[in-house]
Nucleic acid binder design. Structure first.
Length: 503
RNA sequence: GAGCCGCUAGCUCAGUCGGUAGAGCACCGGCCUUUUAAGCCGAGGGUCGGGGGUUCGAAUCCCCCGCGGCUCACCA
């Protein structure tokens, strides 16, 4: 506490002193067992239409408890606002009515938790208000709340001290409640369709399921290094092999990469797998699931996200990646798309730095297509759009297309210029999967960091037979961003990773 | 990892040309028994992110560092 200003220490000491006086008067400043009988929003709803005279006649008695979030004092009387989990309700305290208990009120501060019993009336301005006949101190807050009008604006403080952000900034709680409703809605949607929710390991002996750099950890008793999972994919597909034909998991993935407004090192992913389905079936399913989510959470299938208006109404565009690129880059013909040199030339028009040119020179055909897509198409996909037909080279777990084996039966869903979902018909041919793993191992040997390990047991599982299956991953945080109009992933993660403060 | 912007009282922010620190809220004291950011009077509160430099004099100009935000890169 040595880094605090003199004033904050003073406030702290003053409030400690008030807590001591509460004790003297027989009230534990950190007591327990107090049970309020009513909730703020229930009371307000029940008497919404009651006229002042009617209330005066019936004089209903209510008992509430909450944090004191506003205080307007007149010396021998005051209006305070109590906040419980449902909302705020105004309380009027008067010396005449409270008698000795008025002393308890005078020893309370903004931020304290108190319990109040009293009769409901309408104040002069018409607001439903409880006139306190009993006032019970419950918890003394030793530190002051942030400024009442502007709230807590400092972004870093908001993330580091989310508890204050939640108290001081209206709307923050709403965002997180919406996120919770989103997850519940997805669970219900999948459960209704016969999917089974499971939990698979977060600590993996191998790096698998995605192209990403992992966190490493260590198990002491076994004396082995483990990787925090970057994706649950291979475990979930083992379960399909085992007969859980529809399976899903909503859980954290960990990727040891940069942090940005769209990236947190740990993020929540929905992954689901459905036997006897194709990636095309999953486009239908995704469309249904997300348009339902949008209507339920945002109230409509059209919703505002930043400067965009997004239309989640059904009938989303489905367009092969190479076609999307040709639309965006007028000079490219269908034939050009299969000519790596032509694509390389196209990419070099915008990349001039030595390192960039060198990177382009090394790219495979599939990587060139991917790079062109990211450069010319991705950011323009505002409304939900399925991009299909990804190069097999960048889809090591996806099934080859029967007509063009160099392309995979895969799609990614883009909304507001961002990837929201990634899905494909699963590769269930163990021999092909073995080759793809070997190619990954070879890529790692060449120095590529984001590659998968060879997973022998997974091949073994496939050798026992996995039914034709399609699988999908949906980034829950990013979806929550869209549905809550949040500009940063940190606005939808309660405690995003921040650099620890020194000392 | 790179670029740009920011960091001043507990909170939200001013601070002019370089002249020695300000407001509102919060807090403390006084007045006030129907307020809605209550009001009126008074007081206290500062390592101006840290360090170094220029200068008679630095919150202000220069350099280094730290932390954060945004953009880019990597990625989902």
């Amino acid at each position: 506490m040595s880094d605090e200003g003199v004033k904050e220490q003073e406030i702290y000491a003053q409030r400690l002193e008030k807590a001591r006086k509460w004790r003297e008067l027989g009230f534990h400043p950190y007591g327990s067992g107090y049970r309020p009988l009513h909730l703020a929003s229930d009371i307000l709803a029940r008497h919404e239409k009651d006229a002042p005279e009617a209330l005066e006649k019936s004089a209903p008695v209510y008992s509430v408890a909450g944090r004191m979030v506003a205080l307007r004092s007149f010396g021998k009387a005051a209006f305070i606002k109590l906040r419980d989990r449902t909302g705020d309700i105004q309380v009027h305290v008067k010396k005449d009515t409270l008698l000795d208990a008025f002393e308890l009120f005078k020893l309370s501060d903004l931020g304290d938790f108190v319990g109040v019993v009293g009769t409901l009336f309408r104040s002069k301005t018409g607001e439903l208000t409880i006139s306190a006949t009993r006032f019970t101190p419950l918890t003394k807050a030793l530190r002051p709340l942030p400024e009442k009008w502007h709230g807590l604006a400092d972004t870093e403080a908001r993330y580091r001290q989310r508890y204050l952000d939640l108290v001081a900034n209206p709307g923050v709680k709403e965002v997180f409640l919406k996120r919770t409703r989103l997850v519940k809605l997805i669970r219900d949607f999948l459960d209704d369709r016969g999917f089974v929710e499971v939990e698979t390991p977060m600590m993996h002996p191998l790096v698998s399921g995605a192209a990403a750099r992992p966190f490493t950890t260590h198990h002491n008793a076994l004396d082995i290094d483990l990787y925090m999972r970057i994706a649950p994919e291979l475990y979930l597909k083992r379960l399909v092999v085992g007969g859980i034909e529809r399976v899903y998991e909503i859980n954290r993935n960990f990727r040891n990469e940069g942090i940005s407004t769209r990236h947190n090192p740990e993020f929540t992913m929905l992954e689901f797998y459905q036997a006897y389905a194709t990636y095309e079936d999953l486009m239908d399913l995704t469309e249904e699931m997300l348009s339902e989510a949008a209507s339920a959470l945002a109230g409509a299938t059209r919703l505002k996200y930043g400067d965009h208006e997004l239309d989640f109404g059904k009938g989303w565009k489905r367009i092969p990646m190479s076609e999307a690129i040709r639309e965006a880059v007028p000079g490219l013909s269908d034939k050009d798309m299969s000519d790596p040199d032509r694509l390389r030339h196209e990419l070099l028009r915008t990349r001039h730095a030595d390192a960039e040119v060198a990177a382009v020179q090394q790219m495979t055909h599939g990587e060139l297509v991917g790079a062109l897509f990211e450069e010319h198409v991705e950011h323009r996909l505002t409304h939900p759009t399925f991009i299909t037909r990804f190069p097999t080279a960048v889809s090591p777990l996806a099934r080859r297309n029967d007509e063009s084996p160099e392309m995979a039966d895969r799609f990614e869903l883009f909304v507001a210029g961002r990837e929201i979902a990634n899905a494909f018909s699963e590769l269930n041919d163990p021999l092909d999967q073995k080759e793809r793993f070997l190619a990954q191992v070879e890529a790692k040997r060449r120095g590529q960091e984001e590659t998968m390990d060879y997973d022998e047991d997974y091949i073994r599982a496939l050798e026992h037979g996995m039914p034709p299956t399609a699988g999908e991953g949906i980034g829950i945080d990013r979806l929550a961003m869209l549905l809550t109009d949040s500009p940063s992933i940190r606005d939808v993660i309660l405690f995003p990773l921040l650099k620890p403060l020194p000392r």
